[in-house]
Simulated assay, not measured.
Amino acid sequence: MPRCKFAAWLARPSSCVAIVGASGWVGMALADQVLATRPDLAPNRLRLFGSSPRDLKLPNRQAHMEPLDQAARLGDGDWLVLHAAIVGDDRVEGGDPAEVRRRNDTLLNQVLGLAETGQTRRLVAFSSGAAHRPNAGSAARRAYATMKRDHEAAAAEWGRRTGRAVLIPRVFNLGGPFINHAEAYALGDFILALARRGRIAIGAADPVFRGFVHVSEMARVVLDMAVDEAQSAEPFDIGGAEVVELGALALVVGEALGRADPAIDRPEPGDGPGDWYVGDGRRYQSALFRRGEAPTPLARIVADTVAYLEATGALAGAPDGA
């Protein structure tokens, strides 16, 4: 029998959720799943935070997003605080890594401060699979990975100091609705390239392996884990059940766009070991199983990503037959 812990918890009148970074990919998926669980949830029991006030259109409701730096106290209730926000280098002039780090440190401190203004049941601090590889890639990538590791440690230390529970999911590869900055991700880039230009370009000669998870599936599982007292503060990977090489991913994208044999530009295979960015999904997959769910198939993940981008107009100007 499925055990949907979050639904049972949210049915209590004292249960409340705060989402920081509510307009981002993960934040939107979390808010959507909270409201899918309880569509009639009172506005004061779901508070959404971002860098500035704005109205956020969700599938089940239009909600207001509060500026985090002016946030009122959480107050009464049994709160989950979900931190899914990030200040990317695209929001910092020149992409200066030191300034990116400073702004994200400030953001984390604001979230921790918010979580101390109410009876916080658990802080969920989303991290990145990059934390596994602090010495890999460019200087900017290394700085990002180091920051994520440091923020994991800071969240865990905050939990020990305040006596509040912490959950630290490390996100690797996502797909599905609410994707933003699509060009920055291989899946989004492949979809946009094939739809708009009729070709997919893969720059890597060596194999590149990824394991995708549907963002809505992840949101449901993490919400269940967040109210599960048996879950520890040890970081864990959001690891998919399927591992796919980018060439095979391009073929799945082609199928989703109605192109069974998509044009793919890629160098001749190299002799390097390739790149694996997959994650150890054992803890995540166990929680998914306890919900009574099976992993979302890759074809469905890709199809849902295509459908969202199409619905938002991102595929406008696609050539005939796309």
Rank of each mutant, 00 (worst) to 15 (best):
S216D: 15
E217R: 04
E217D: 08
M218L: 08
A219K: 00
R220P: 02
V221A: 03
L223V: 07
D224G: 11
M225F: 05
M225Y: 08
M225P: 04
A226F: 00
A226D: 05
A226H: 01
V227M: 07
V227E: 02
D228K: 08
E229A: 15
Q231N: 04
Q231W: 00
S232I: 14
A233D: 12
A233G: 00
E234Y: 02
P235G: 09
P235F: 06
F236H: 12
F236Q: 14
F236E: 12
D237N: 00
D237G: 02
D237K: 00
D237E: 03
G239P: 03
G239R: 03
G240S: 05
A241S: 15
A241C: 11
E242L: 08
V244P: 03
E245K: 04
G247K: 14
G247L: 09
A248N: 11
L249S: 01
A250V: 01
L251Y: 12
L251K: 15
V252C: 05
V252K: 09
V252E: 10
V252D: 07
V253N: 02
E255L: 14
E255I: 09
L257A: 10
L257R: 07
R259Y: 02
R259G: 05
R259C: 08
R259V: 03
A260L: 07
A260F: 02
D261F: 14
D261W: 11
P262L: 00
A263L: 12
A263H: 13
I264P: 06
I264T: 03
D265M: 12
R266H: 07
P267M: 08
P267V: 06
P267S: 05
P267F: 05
E268G: 04
P269G: 08
G270L: 03
G270R: 06
G270A: 10
G270V: 02
G270I: 09
D271Q: 15
D271P: 08
D271G: 10
P273F: 11
G274I: 00
D275A: 15
W276Y: 14
W276H: 14
Y277S: 14
Y277F: 15
V278N: 05
G279N: 01
D280I: 10
D280W: 06
G281R: 03
R282S: 13
R282K: 14
